[in-house]
């Protein structure tokens, strides 16, 4: 008992973060490293670049799917933005009564999205709407619209009203106030809304699987197929996951860049 332990655990506030940090390390960082390793292994666990060659030469149609997914993701995001911006704008403008409306938009998110999508399919089948691109787009917009509205709403609400009053005092009409004051100030909301819609939209597989009976095949479906339906194409699946990860990182960089610009312009 004479030797004191060299390391002594001290219960500081930081210690409360350790469980989560360990959790993150085990369930986020380690899997990512495993994916990275798998991307360079062939079926016999030997080092290879073949997986990258296979993906980028479009042998399994991976690039085509990526292209299709990007298009569909883009269109979904665009529709969400066009519908979501006015909604967020008016919710923010009539702030007093909007809490109930905001709740109305969040409410469907409390229902499991698989259940929502399955019921959407049932509705379409009841109405004799043929399943295909149209129904998949509908499902995507329906599911991701709240993710567009919420960040936009938060940004729009937090805009200092005196900016708008100042613009009006200086003689700007309503259109000019919107274009020159509100829109630039809400740019960060638009960027985060777009990211929050675009990234899940290109990586989803359940919506396209249910609402087109697996006919519309998206990047998420392709990755899912590589991992769950076959035994020995983990390599290409890992490469595809890495590409997906790259897209996520790129969009995060874009978000950071715009928020930095805003800080500069705010000064």
């Amino acid at each position: 008992m004479k030797n004191k332990p060299k390391f002594k655990f001290r219960l500081t506030r930081r210690a409360f973060a350790y469980p989560y940090m360990i959790f993150m390390l085990l369930f986020v960082v380690v899997p990512l490293v495993i994916i990275l390793i798998n991307a360079f292994l062939d079926d016999n666990k030997q080092f290879t670049f073949q997986n990258f060659v296979e993906f980028f030469s479009d042998a399994g149609g991976g690039l085509t799917v990526l292209g299709n997914s990007l298009v569909i993701g883009l269109v979904t995001t665009l529709i969400c933005l066009v519908i979501g911006y006015p909604v967020a704008y008016f919710l923010a403008k009539y702030h007093a009564s909007s809490r109930v409306f905001v709740l109305l938009f969040i409410l469907p998110m409390w229902v499991n999205f698989l259940i929502r999508t399955l019921s959407t399919k049932a509705l379409f089948m009841q109405l004799n709407v043929p399943l295909g691109m149209g129904t998949v787009l509908f499902g995507m917009v329906y599911n991701y619209l709240p993710y567009m509205i919420l960040p936009l709403h938060t940004t729009l609400v937090s805009i200092d009203h005196s900016y708008i009053e100042a613009a009006e005092d200086l003689g700007a009409d309503k259109m000019t106030v919107f274009l020159k004051t509100v829109l630039p100030l809400s740019l960060s909301g638009i960027v985060s809304g777009v990211t929050m819609t675009f990234i899940p939209a290109i990586s989803t597989f359940a919506i396209s699987e249910i609402l087109s009976s697996s006919k519309i095949f998206l990047f998420g479906d392709a990755i899912n197929m590589h991992f769950s339906k076959t035994t020995n194409s983990l390599g290409v699946g890992s490469v595809m996951s890495l590409v997906m990860l790259l897209l996520v990182i790129l969009s995060n960089v874009a978000v950071n860049l715009t928020s930095k610009d805003e800080e500069v312009s705010a000064l």
Binding site: G61, G62, N68, M133, D221, A222, M225, H226, N232, S233
Partner: peptide, 28 residues
């Protein structure tokens, strides 16, 4: 041949009927 069959199946699932995606882009 397992790997080749899987690749072929993925290719078949990914392609064909892609006209609708291009049309979608055009319409948007």
């Amino acid at each position: 041949k397992n790997h080749d069959v899987v690749t072929a199946w993925n290719y078949a699932r990914s392609t064909g009927d892609t006209g609708s995606t291009l049309a979608l882009l055009g319409w948007t």
